[in-house]
Design a protein around this nucleic acid. Structure first.
Lengths: 342, 342
DNA sequence: AGTTAGCACTCTGGCAACTGGAGTGCCAGT
DNA sequence: ACTGGCACTCCAGTTGCCAGAGTGCTAACT
């Protein structure tokens, strides 16, 4: 009974604060929610909540605002996420429907997320390490230059120009392509380095220079591009919050420019939890202690391949962000699975 | 004599204002610059300059700040751009030196520009419309799907997946590739649509479905990707200015998210002027009336192919920005020309 | 025990009044 | 053509003040 109302009070505080962005007091609380008790009672509960660390008062005589812990409690409480409206679902559908490309899907998704949540959206490309090579091509460009193209089952295409000292023998190149193809097609990315290295040994000595150059470049590409690609959008949404809020955008903008940081923010793609929320200090990135990240991984053929999410101020609309992120992740998953390169 | 000093006064005002970001008065002016006259005299000149519209006073008793026109005059005066220091040149060199890819060059360049100027940097990929196709590949992916890869002399690679109703005949595909290659290799991009359309006619009726699908996709890609690609960086530099300045970042961030707007900002790649500066209202994009853009085109084999530049508040350090942009453009040009896909 | 009304207390945010300083324009003198 | 002097204006910062909002506590009520 007692516990129950306290929770209701906390929820009321969070939702009011999220809506108004101003500290909320006991009076306002009983006015706007049907709590059936007087402000004085609420005050007692609020004192208790403050004691326990869920809310805090900016100064003696202001209302209360939720702490990170308070948000956390609030978020954990919304286990059952409100489904999107039919209109929203239709919107998502239409937005993604006629994407032609992986690039296209990614850029549409990021725009969609930013638009629906009014936050900054982050979308990670399907991870190479969780993919398989579908195909490899070696295209001679001129006497000493060729292009390697790796096509991955997620639809990602990685390309790399190779310069080699010896002049390129097209016959040898075709042979190399064929054998590379046999060696690594439909194999998980993680096994590629070993396989290509083994392959190098099987070539005759006189072919070695070219073969070696190509294989070295493949290895380099594989290593390099494993640091995953991300796209983001909706940065202008940051400015809206900036106005009345202590969330200085400088560190956020800086973080957004660092791929590595972004990836840390999105978090590991674990199979366990789909939807993840990091609130304020919970994410250990310097300077982002007053921002929250709502993220989810998305899957291809029910194999999780990467993450997407939004980043915003801690006082964001969690309910909406969570349901939107989840829904978009589902749609992208379905879309990817339908269009897989079989 | 008279005219000459006025100009000196204007230059002094601009450089002081750019340095301090505070209105500059007559007293401060004679202190910090050796003008050899008294404040009163300067005041007369300032009154004249205000009359002519080069400077303005925020209010009755503050110093003066330059108007857009004032900046314009200032900028036009720096016809001879100060060369970069040896250290800076070396820095640029090292930064670009081991780029392996066009993508790599572009992303390095944008980082470099942002870092050197402490502004937001914009770099446009070499324009397709000013390039030639080097090579075209058609790679079958599965029964009904193939990938078109266009390799352009600037090093740009465009790819596109094509889905076709009929199943893919590899022999026909190879033939198509060969004939496409003959038709469009080493031809300017602008002539591609006509050439591929003509080609379609030459195929036998039973081959048409596949041929048509591929050609339609090529046309689509060519049209679509003609809207050029840009990359940008250093957005966090915006935040620094925001603090003490009336330049609200919201519209700027919004503009940065719109490719089309960015391209308008960079301006047409004309052969006439290399370095271009648009100050405040001179760029007619909504909401960017207190930002300036310094841009230059860069070239490949002395053929201008695209633009790069920086965008910042009107009270930026023009001298530095201009010389940096020019230098970087030169280096990129040289680098591209050295690495051309011959 | 839990809830409520009442009350004294505290702190903020806004408003008005004031002041020092910076900067100007103008005029008369060199 | 330049300069010194002077009266004037306006901003930015400071102070003092008040109303309002919100709290914690205590004593009464159910």
């Amino acid at each position: 009974m007692l516990e129950e109302r306290r929770l209701a009070v906390l929820q009321a505080i969070v939702s009011d604060y999220v809506a108004t962005h101003e500290p909320v007091g006991s009076k306002a609380l009983v006015d706007r929610h049907q709590l059936g008790v007087s402000p004085a009672t609420i005050r007692n509960d609020m004192a208790a909540l403050e004691e326990e660390g869920y809310i805090t008062a900016p100064h003696t005589s202001a209302g209360r605002i939720p702490t990170d812990l308070g948000y956390r409690m609030f978020v954990d409480q919304i286990a059952q996420i409100k489904p999107l409206s039919a209109a929203e679902r239709r919107g998502i559908d239409r937005f993604l429907f006629d994407a032609v490309d992986l690039d296209d899907i990614m850029s549409r998704t990021v725009r969609l997320l930013a638009q629906l949540t009014k936050q900054v959206a982050i979308v990670q490309y399907p991870s190479l390490s969780r993919s398989q090579v579908r195909r490899i091509e070696l295209i001679p460009l001129n006497e000493h230059r060729l292009m390697i193209i790796l096509i991955v089952d997620s639809g990602r295409v990685e390309q790399r120009i190779v310069e080699c000292a010896v002049s390129i023998d097209e016959i040898l190149l075709a042979d190399l392509r064929e054998r590379l193809s046999v060696a690594i097609a439909d194999q998980p990315f993680s096994s590629v380095p070993q396989r290509v290295e083994d392959l190098e040994q099987t070539f005759a000595a006189e072919s070695r220079p070219l073969v070696h150059a190509v294989i070295a470049a493949i290895l380099e590409t594989v290593m390099e591009k494993l640091d995953e690609r991300v796209v983001l959008g909706g940065a202008s949404n940051l400015a809206r919050y900036n106005e009345d809020f202590p969330m200085t955008i400088q560190p956020v903008l800086e973080a957004l420019e660092e791929q590595v940081v972004l990836l840390r923010l999105l978090g590991e793609v674990g199979t366990e939890t789909k939807l993840s929320v990091r609130i304020g200090h919970e994410n250990e990135v310097e300077g982002l202690s007053s921002t929250s990240i709502v993220s989810s991984h998305y899957a291809q053929e029910s194999r999780p391949v990467a993450s997407l999410g939004v980043i915003g101020p801690t006082n964001m609309d969690y309910a909406n962000s969570m349901s939107t992120v989840q829904a978009v992740a589902q749609y992208v998953s379905r879309f990817l699975s339908d269009n897989e390169l079989k």
